[in-house]
């Protein structure tokens, strides 16, 4: 069976009037297996959307090849587009239509039934807003409707371009559950995001993108393991005397800051056991390395979403 997506050496350069050449996509290659949840993570302007648009078949690359489900997305093919669902960054709706009319129109375009349209509306939790005009839906509801429209054709492969951008935390988490469910049905999902947490929580594998290039691809856990960074353990100061702190030699570095003691250790289990036996767990926090640290390591730059 072909991979869901195979991309080799994509390049796209824009020639701005004043800004000169911008290499939006600069030699991008990756492969997504069927059934995978694949994330493209990077700050705004990293080239995620342009990459996605080329893969979807909206833009032609200057060079490089794309295979979607074994076929080329260019030129337009009714057969291939019927197997792929997309949610674009802007919610693209027919003006003045209700949520139901909207999704039924998309259902007709994909040759799907009205029942399927109603089912999708229900899946994204919009059944009771079916009669509301699209422009009156909240941002989160619009994103969900847009995802429902992406799913109505029963796609094997789903592209989601920053679906949670500009949503409040609760709406974002609801959408995460929905995205997990879509993937659990066996659909391949490709997600772009600039939220570390989102990529960490949802994706099987993540491509970290910056300045038009993919810097590294790995699973979130694999990235963190590969970083081999110490765990930071913090407790409130005043629970341990200085000598005892020194005795906890399992920690590599110990610093005191703002009435707290911060240990950095590669053996957090031993340190935490010791702290627990001392009864010095007040104000405890444990922070392992996350994708933010990975981003810093991979790109050499501080994360700025």
């Amino acid at each position: 069976m072909d991979a869901a997506i195979e991309v080799a050496d994509l390049r796209k350069t824009y020639r701005g009037r004043r800004s000169g050449e911008i290499r939006a996509v600069d030699g991008v290659s990756f492969r997504v297996e069927r059934g995978e949840f694949f994330g493209i993570l990077g700050p705004n302007g990293a080239g995620k959307t342009t990459t996605l648009e080329i893969v979807e078949g909206l833009r032609k690359p200057d060079s490089g090849t794309v295979r979607l489900l074994g076929e080329s997305p260019w030129p337009h093919s009714a057969e291939l587009t019927g197997r792929v669902g997309v949610q674009l960054q802007a919610s693209a709706f027919f003006e003045f239509l209700t949520a139901r009319e909207q999704i039924e129109t998309f259902a007709e375009l994909y040759g799907a039934s009205k029942a399927r349209a109603a089912e999708m509306l229900d899946l994204v939790g919009l059944a009771e807003h079916a009669g509301v005009r699209c422009e009156k839906l909240s941002g989160g509801q619009q994103q969900r409707l847009s995802i429902a429209c992406a799913l109505v054709g029963d796609p094997e492969l789903v592209f989601l371009d920053e679906p949670t951008a500009a949503l409040d935390p609760q709406a974002r988490r609801n959408l995460w559950d929905l995205m997990r469910a879509i993937n659990a049905e066996g659909r391949t999902v490709v997600l772009t995001t600039h939220y570390m947490e989102e990529a960490e929580s949802l994706c099987d594998r993540v491509a970290i993108m910056d300045a038009g290039k993919i810097k590294a691809v790995d699973s979130p856990a694999g990235f963190v393991r590969g970083l081999d960074a110490p765990t930071r353990v913090t407790v409130a100061a005043g629970q341990l005397d200085a000598e005892r702190v020194r005795e906890l030699a399992v920690a590599e570095t110990v610093t005191e800051q703002d009435a707290a003691i911060v240990f950095e250790t590669r053996d957090p289990r031993k340190l935490l056991t010791a702290l627990a036996s001392d009864g010095a767990l007040e104000g405890l926090s444990v922070r392992t390395a996350n994708l933010e640290d990975v981003f810093l390591h991979v790109t050499g730059r501080e994360w700025r979403a």
Binding site: T105, E108, D154, E185
Partner: peptide, 29 residues
């Protein structure tokens, strides 16, 4: 559920119905 279960063969008929549903959606708007 199995993927692809609701997909129907794409024929000229589907194309005509796509045209008609677009006319309907745009006209309504």
């Amino acid at each position: 559920m199995t993927l692809g279960a609701v997909r129907e063969p794409r024929t000229r008929q589907v194309r005509t119905s796509a045209y008609l549903s677009l006319v309907k959606a745009l006209g309504r708007g």
